[in-house]
């Protein structure tokens, strides 16, 4: 039987190292299966967060040979098994233990976004057409695996995560998606555009599209959420003609 060698990161917030394990390969095996095998055969204390093993819960985010990916969606037969496969926790968020990271920073960001604010609270009168929710439905596919947050260089390399200083804060692709899903909702009456610019730091995004590349739900994060939000920010803050127009007409 073919055998894979996995170098798995073992450690905690104080530091760690890679430990190599040998795993017998079965047909259709994914990285998460191999991790489970390691837990069963060698290391019952190996920590990994997972729930569904079907790319729907967004728990098992990791970096396999340096690529941010869901461990349950990464097949062993995509790798050259003559070399060890490196599995590590996502880099952008602090390690709790082994492959488990503390992603609670994301929940703090989430709390700051004004939730859905319906213009008409009588839901009996709601009539929403498919055309109006197509865009929003794409964003609702998000499983909050935070791979986009992890790969985004603004958070990953520049660490713009200072919750106390909006000058050093970028909400990250996942929350640009959430903001876009609310802003484009036909029944929503709140305006989150100033928040998007001033507190969520959309200007930090330089649209290098890594978030879109890693999204396991294939959400076109950059093209459909971030760029449209950037354009809405331009409408309110940068377009000189629209600014003069608003001054002259007094319209919003």
């Amino acid at each position: 039987m073919a055998e894979a060698r996995l170098k798995v990161y073992r450690g905690d917030s104080g530091g760690g190292q890679y430990v190599e394990y040998k795993v017998p390969v079965e047909a259709g095996m994914v990285i998460l299966d191999a991790i489970h095998y390691i837990q069963g055969a060698y290391a019952p204390d190996l920590a990994v967060r997972w729930n569904c093993k079907a790319a729907k819960c967004g728990s098992c985010s990791g970096e396999v040979n340096g690529k941010p990916s869901l461990m349950c969606k990464t097949r062993l037969d995509d790798f050259d098994l003559s070399e060890p496969i490196e599995v590590r926790p996502i880099k952008t968020f602090p390690v709790v233990k082994d492959l488990v990271t503390d992603v609670s920073w994301n929940y703090e960001i989430n709390k700051r976004i004004v939730p859905f604010t319906p213009t008409n609270t009588n839901t009996d009168e709601w009539k929403i057409y498919q055309d109006d929710v197509d865009r929003v439905q794409e964003f609702r596919k998000c499983i909050e695996c935070f791979l986009c947050q992890n790969v985004c260089h603004v958070l990953r390399n520049h660490d713009k995560k200072d919750l106390d200083d909006p000058k050093h804060l970028f909400a990250g692709p996942r929350f640009m998606v959430r903001i876009a899903s609310l802003e484009m909702h036909p029944m929503d009456g709140a305006n989150r555009v100033p928040f998007t610019k001033n507190e969520a730091g959309i200007g930090y995004c330089n649209i290098t599209k890594c978030c879109t590349e890693v999204c396991p739900e294939d959400i076109h994060i950059t093209d459909n959420a971030i760029i449209p939000m950037k354009e809405r920010v331009v409408d309110e803050f940068y377009d000189p003609v629209l600014m003069i127009w608003r001054k002259m007409t007094g319209k919003k």
Partner: peptide
């Protein structure tokens, strides 16, 4: 909430664990 510092802030130009081209 725990310290949220990224482990990649000191990565040098071109530093990666990726093995693809």
């Amino acid at each position: 909430m725990a310290n949220s510092r990224s482990m990649a802030i000191n990565d040098k130009l071109g530093q990666t664990e990726r093995r693809d081209s």
